[in-house]
Nucleic acid binder design. Structure first.
Lengths: 242, 242
DNA sequence: CGCGCGCTTGATCAGCATCAATTCGCGTGG
DNA sequence: CCACGCGAATTGATGCTGATCAAGCGCGCG
């Protein structure tokens, strides 16, 4: 598995080919991580950050509240580069592949290129997604809450080519899903059944099939604007030709 | 009111005096904003960002869910500098004073200094606070939720010298508080009464008095680590003497 | 084959929303 | 000066959403 495919995620389309090469050369080889492994524990000093290449990685706060869910192309703990420790655990959900970037390497990269801005942008997108999670948990109830999360995941996965026809792999248990939705596993199960019975989506065998994308978005009050997809793919403020 | 007092908030202690001067010179004069004014509406193109000098500013998502609450020293919509529009409204809660920074000025600043990193750091702190809000709303119930929020506000205000002896001004109505806590105004009222009757805190006339800080933190499961206060005030990675 | 984990379903209970009404504080105009 | 109006605070009554407790099922794996 080559990491370069995902280097261009999260607005890094704006980078020049030279910058992308610089970025790729600074990362480690791809490393495999087994499912359920805790990659970073909260509070521990960290000296490197990870780019997800394959699989799903989550960030978990106190009482196992999931606060973030990362897909291939996401840097998981760029926070650690600037803050030197994390305020949450980082856990692989299924089997995962990552590349790591030592903070020393990132520091050198920052000196030599506009990559600092790319990283900042990535952090801003994380923050925007966090805000959507606050809204989801704070204002939507059961079915709508799940619908909103599935819409988000679909949109994000589609941006990196990992969703097709409303269908994508999602190696979460219903307990994991509950941790993200802030619902018990029991209630998550009932919510999934309700969505299935309404013909909106099925989630079985680690595979999501969205049957009615429009209705799902409506139920979940989902507006993808906060993912800034079009902006990121649009030509940047940088002059087009040099 | 001079803005320089708050330029050093949010980890900007790390900046050199020259950088601080550069920053101060790039901002507008202090502008007064009346209470309840919407400063930026979601989706609108933005071409400047704001630093809060006095008062409270919040960010509100769909259905009036508050997703963020900003105090003097916070940049409210630095997001807009990189993303060019916001995924939420920005609203003054009480009467507020701000200085604005045009994105052109910020771009020039970025070129000339390490300010990009300071801004990035500020965004990372916002994200960390967002995560704490997800935990609070997702895992804590009524009283604990309110306790956690009051602890956060106290800690943040103390960092910029706006809280003393567990007491600080907070110009929110109970409805506003409910929007932040994701509770109805009615239930917010009952929760406040419960906290008062337990001798933990009183909130009256826009003034918070924390009577038992330790017990409040315990009830709210509050650990201030996510605010990175000590890290920000500690000497930075930058060489101490030049 | 049996154990464990995840999924599923039923029954009961608690936290909070909702609806409704009253009171309080305060600025405004008669 | 007082009546009025309006937003905010407060309190009561009722109902819904989702937690909790409990039990059974399916399936992969040692």
């Amino acid at each position: 598995m080559n990491s370069s495919k995902f280097l261009a995620g999260r607005g890094r389309e704006r980078l020049t080919p030279e910058e992308l090469i610089l970025l790729e050369d600074s990362g480690s080889d791809v490393q495999a991580v087994e499912a359920r492994r805790t990659l970073v524990r909260r509070g521990e000093p960290v000296c490197s950050s990870m780019l997800v290449i394959d699989g799903f990685v989550c960030r978990a706060a106190t009482d196992n509240q999931m606060v973030s869910l990362h897909i291939p192309g996401d840097f998981v703990d760029l926070d650690g580069f600037k803050l030197k420790r994390l305020d949450h655990d980082v856990v692989a959900i299924g089997p995962v592949k990552v590349t790591t970037y030592s903070h020393d390497a990132l520091a050198i990269l920052s000196e030599r290129s506009r990559l600092t801005e790319a990283f900042w942008l990535s952090s801003l997108l994380d923050a925007a997604i966090h805000r959507a999670w606050i809204f989801r948990i704070g204002r939507l109830e059961g079915e709508a809450r799940a619908a909103h999360l599935f819409c988000e995941l679909h949109a994000r996965l589609e941006m990196v080519g990992l969703a097709e026809d409303g269908s994508f792999g999602l190696p979460l248990t219903q307990l994991d899903l509950g941790a993200a939705l802030s619902l018990t596993a029991v209630h998550t199960n009932r919510v999934l059944r309700a969505l299935r019975e309404q013909g909106l989506l099925t989630f079985r065998n680690r595979q999501v099939e969205i049957h009615d994308r429009k209705a799902l978005a409506k139920l979940g009050n989902f507006d993808a604007a906060y993912l800034y997809a079009s902006d990121l793919n649009a030509p940047s403020g940088r002059p087009l030709d040099g």
